[in-house]
């Protein structure tokens, strides 16, 4: 018994020592870290990565320099993730700034995707606060009557906020018609102001507030924040109904809930930073500590909110890993259900 106790203590002590050894503070003095950015230069993901990089380099031990490598158009998001999964060195010298699409099951389960987001090691990221669906003033009345449908403008059929409109039509009786094909959010904003479309959504509080200030829109529903189980209203829009709460009153079958979550779930991780699979714990700890330090910096938070959203919610690496885990477990039936609804309403998606 004594021997067993002694042996146990020895094993435990050895394990602790090993653990301690593996998390010895890293020093990046004189090193160059490469940040892979899964987007074109100038886009939101790019700007986010460079903003994080600007602060991260001073918070990492030894203040290394950071170089940015954009994976431009041409399936850049997938190529960056493929590269991180199979080619990038896992010695703390490479990290990737990416977005929700890398987590989306329908994207991950494609042949061209040679990565599993569950193997990535997230450092942290942020959520803009969840999308808010809004319509031109005066169109609310048409939303639930049988007259001329409310026109929903969209870039493509795959944006996560569109789940709200599709489920709104199917379960809340919203009278909608979709027109995908706009070039970008800029074009949508202009079309909304012109009256070419009646409804759209964005997570950017800057854009929403500008339209509200100009008296163009009224807010209808919001995606909500807080994970895939409980959705809360954004602090900036406390009175706007949270969409899942609207659905709850309709007693949806489980497959409908799963289908909804399969589409909208990935948007919980809006923009995030990750290390490659297999990165040693010491580096992970160093990066996560630096990330926490960056996101505690008031100046950084001020810039983040000014550039992206005043409701920006910072997410830790562990939180992001949890969301990825949940989203990845979505069943093929749930994805198929979501596809069937899209097909029913003539909204195609990748």
């Amino acid at each position: 018994m004594t021997n067993f106790k002694f042996g146990s203590v020895f094993v435990l002590a050895s394990a602790l020592a090993l653990q301690a050894g593996s998390t010895v503070a890293q020093d990046y003095s004189g090193k160059t870290i490469q940040m892979l950015i899964a987007s074109n230069a100038g886009g939101g993901t790019d700007r986010m990565g460079r903003l994080f990089g600007l602060y991260l380099k001073d918070k990492l031990p030894g203040s290394p320099s950071i170089v940015y490598r954009n994976f431009a158009a041409g399936g850049g998001k997938i190529r960056a993730a493929n590269y991180l999964a199979s080619e990038a060195k896992s010695d703390g010298s490479t990290l990737m700034q990416t977005d929700a699409s890398v987590v989306t099951p329908s994207m991950v389960r494609r042949k061209v995707s040679k990565f599993d987001p569950r193997t990535f090691i997230p450092i942290g990221g942020f959520n803009a606060g969840g999308s808010v669906v809004f319509a031109r003033k005066g169109t609310m009345k048409r939303l639930t009557d049988s007259g001329k449908p409310v026109i929903v403008g969209a870039i493509s059929g795959s944006r996560s906020w569109q789940a709200m409109t599709v489920w709104g039509k199917e379960y809340l009786g919203w009278n909608l018609r979709w027109i995908p094909g706009y070039k970008g959010t800029r074009s949508l904003m202009k079309a909304l102001r012109q009256g070419e479309i009646d409804m759209m959504a964005t997570a950017s509080s800057k854009r929403i507030d500008r339209l509200l200030k100009d008296g163009v829109i009224e807010l209808i529903a919001q995606e909500g924040v807080g994970g895939s189980q409980v959705f809360k209203a954004r602090a900036a829009y406390p009175d706007v109904p949270v969409f899942p709460a609207l659905l709850k009153a309709k007693n949806l079958p489980q497959i409908a809930w799963d289908g909804y979550k399969s589409w909208i779930g990935p948007s919980q991780v809006d923009k995030w930073l990750t290390l490659p699979p297999g990165t040693p714990k010491a580096h992970v700890a160093a990066y996560r500590t630096a990330f926490n330090s960056v996101t505690s910096d008031k100046k950084f938070i001020k810039l983040l909110k000014k550039q992206f959203s005043k409701d920006a919610v910072i997410m830790s690496g562990e939180e992001i890993a949890n969301v990825i885990k949940k989203v990845s477990h979505v069943s093929n039936d749930a994805i198929a259900f979501s596809r069937t609804l899209r097909k029913k309403f003539d909204i195609s998606s990748r």
């Binding site: 158009a73 041409g74 399936g75 061209v112 870039i155 493509s156 795959s158 995908p180 195609s348 990748r350």
Partner: peptide, 23 residues
């Protein structure tokens, strides 16, 4: 490239390179 209105990947020959069209 990918046709946004229908999500059809036109002439991509099974890869991602041409998803955003020809530069």
């Amino acid at each position: 490239g990918v046709d946004d209105k229908t999500a059809v990947e036109r002439f991509d020959f099974g890869g991602t390179y041409l998803w955003d069209g020809v530069s």
